[in-house]
Design a protein around this nucleic acid. Structure first.
Length: 366
RNA sequence: GCUGAGGUGGCGGAGUGGACAAUCGCAAGAGACUGUAAAUCUCUCGCCCGAAAGGGCUACAUAGGUUCGAAUCCUGUCCUCAGCA
C-alpha cells in the first residue's frame, strides 16, 4: 500500500530516496557528470534562489532546470518556504510574512513577493517531478498561539497551491504527466497542531506530506514525535518526506517510521567544510545501518591527514576512495584547491547513496 | 672594515615609557553545520592553578643601566640585512 516507486521524467526510483540539495541548479563544487557518478538518484532545487534569474530567460529556452543542467535524474523543487525562515525570520534579508505570501527585500530597491501561486507556477516551469507547496515555517521558539497562526496560514496556502497546481495541469493538459505535489506539515512541537495540520492537508489532497519546520528539539535531538504524528495521520499511499533531513542516523530513524524521501545539505556542505562520512565497515556489503555507530567522521583538514597514505574508506567506491589517498585530499584542502571540495563532496554523496541502497535492502521496518 | 636599518610569541608583522602576555594575519587545535544568501561561522592558541571570575610565573636577541614603571630610553655584546669599500 505505501508507494513503491518515485516516478520521474526518465523512469522510476525505488524507495527510499535521498536527494542532495542543488539549490541553485548546481550541487556546489560538482558538475552533472560528478553527480551521476555518485549514483545519486535525484536532486533538489530551490524556487527562492532560482526564480528571479531563470524564469524569463533560461527556463523558456531549455524547458526546465534539468534540461538546463543536462541532468537526467529525478528532481524535486522546493517552494521557498524554508527561506521564509532561514532568510526572513533569521534576519539575513529583510522581509515579512503576510496572508498573501512572503515578501522579501533583497536590496533597497528590490521587492519580491512570493505567493503560493507564484511558487507553484515557477516550479512547474522548473519542470521537476515533485512540486512542494509554499508553507509558513513554524519557528521552533514560538508559543502555541503563534504556532497555530503559522499552521492556519500553511493550510490556506496549501489550498491555494493545490488549486493553482490543478489549474496549470489542466491548462497544459498534463493529465498523467502531472508532477507530484507535496503538502508541508507545520505546527512545531505541538502535536495537536501537527495532527490538525496533517489532517487538513490530507483533506485538500496531496501525493505526499513533508515534515516541515525545524526537526530538532531544544536539546538538538531529533523530534521523532512530530514525525510519528504526521505518519500516523497520513494515508498509507502517501509519500512521506523528511524535508532537510538529515544526519545519517536521522534518515535511518525516519525511514523506520515510514518516511521515504529525504533531502539535505549536510553531505555537500560538510564535505566542503572538511567533514567526511565514513562507514565503520570493511566493505560496502558489511555495512549495517541498524547498528548505533555505523559511521564516523574523517577530517582531512587535520595535520595528521597529510601523512595518511591510506584510502579514506574501504567501504566506498567513489572516485576519492578508489583512486586517491587521504594525504592527497588533505593536501588539496591545505592549498585550498577547489578539487578538495569536489572530491570530498563526491565521497559524501556516495556515502548517502550507499546509505539509501542499504536502507532499501536491509532496514528493519517498525 | 665603514655607514645605515633592524632583531617581538610556531611564522609574518603591529606596538616605540604605564591601559601589554602584547592589535592583526597565517599556521595549529576544538566545536558548529539538518527543505544551503555557509569552500562558512565560533572558540582556543607563552606556562601553571581555576568551572568561571580571577590569580601566579616567565617573556619582546643578550647583559647591564635610567625610571615609581621599559618590548618601548641609554650603554656594552652577539646576530641579521642593505649600501659602500
Amino acid at each position: 500500500m505505501p508507494p513503491k516507486f518515485f516516478k520521474y521524467k526518465y523512469g522510476k526510483l525505488p524507495l527510499p530516496v535521498f536527494f542532495p540539495d542543488a539549490t541553485r541548479a548546481v550541487l556546489r563544487s560538482l558538475d552533472t557528470t560528478d553527480i551521476e557518478n555518485t549514483k545519486t538518484q535525484g536532486i533538489l532545487v530551490n524556487t527562492f534562489h532560482l526564480w528571479q534569474g531563470l524564469e524569463k530567460t533560461i527556463l523558456k529556452k531549455f524547458g526546465g532546470v534539468r534540461e538546463f543542467m543536462d541532468y537526467e535524474g529525478a528532481a524535486i523543487s522546493d517552494s521557498g518556504g524554508f527561506q521564509v525562515m532561514s532568510v526572513i525570520k533569521s534576519g539575513q534579508i529583510k522581509g515579512r510574512i503576510t496572508d498573501q505570501g512572503a515578501i522579501f527585500y533583497p536590496s533597497k530597491n528590490k521587492k519580491l513577493i512570493l505567493t503560493p501561486e507564484k511558487s507553484v507556477e515557477f516550479q512547474m516551469k522548473l519542470n521537476t517531478d515533485m512540486v512542494v507547496v509554499l508553507d509558513d515555517f513554524t519557528d521552533p521558539k514560538v508559543n502555541y498561539k503563534e504556532a497555530k497562526i503559522s499552521v492556519e496560514r500553511t493550510i490556506d496556502w496549501a489550498k491555494r497551491s493545490k488549486s493553482e497546481f490543478e489549474k496549470i495541469c489542466k491548462k497544459r493538459k498534463l493529465n498523467k504527466n502531472c508532477p507530484y505535489i507535496l503538502g508541508v506539515v507545520q505546527g512545531g512541537k505541538y502535536q495537536d497542531l501537527r495532527e490538525y495540520c496533517t489532517r487538513e492537508l490530507v483533506k485538500i489532497g496531496f501525493d505526499g506530506l513533508g515534515y516541515g519546520g525545524w526537526p530538532l528539539n531544544e536539546k538538538g535531538d531529533f523530534d521523532y514525535e512530530s514525525a510519528k504524528t504526521i505518519a500516523e495521520n497520513s494515508p498509507q499511499n502517501y509519500f512521506l518526506y523528511g524535508l532537510g533531513v538529515g544526519k545519517p542516523q536521522d534518515v535511518v530513524g525516519l525511514c523506520k517510521l515510514g518516511f521515504n524521501i529525504f533531502d539535505c545539505v549536510l553531505p555537500s556542505r560538510d564535505a566542503r567544510h572538511g567533514r567526511l562520512y565514513v562507514y565503520n565497515a570493511e566493505s560496502i556489503n558489511k555495512i549495517d545501518v541498524n547498528k548505533p555507530n555505523f559511521y564516523k567522521f574523517a577530517n582531512p583538514k587535520r595535520v595528521a591527514a597529510l601523512s595518511d597514505n591510506s584510502k579514506v574508506s574501504t567501504a566506498c567506491d567513489c572516485l576519492l576512495c578508489t583512486r586517491y589517498s587521504m594525504a592527497y585530499l588533505a593536501h588539496l584542502f591545505k592549498i585550498r584547491d577547489f578539487t578538495a571540495g569536489r572530491l570530498a563532496t563526491i565521497h559524501n554523496l556516495r556515502f548517502y547513496s550507499i546509505l539509501m541502497e542499504r536502507l532499501r535492502s536491509t532496514i528493519d521496518k517498525v
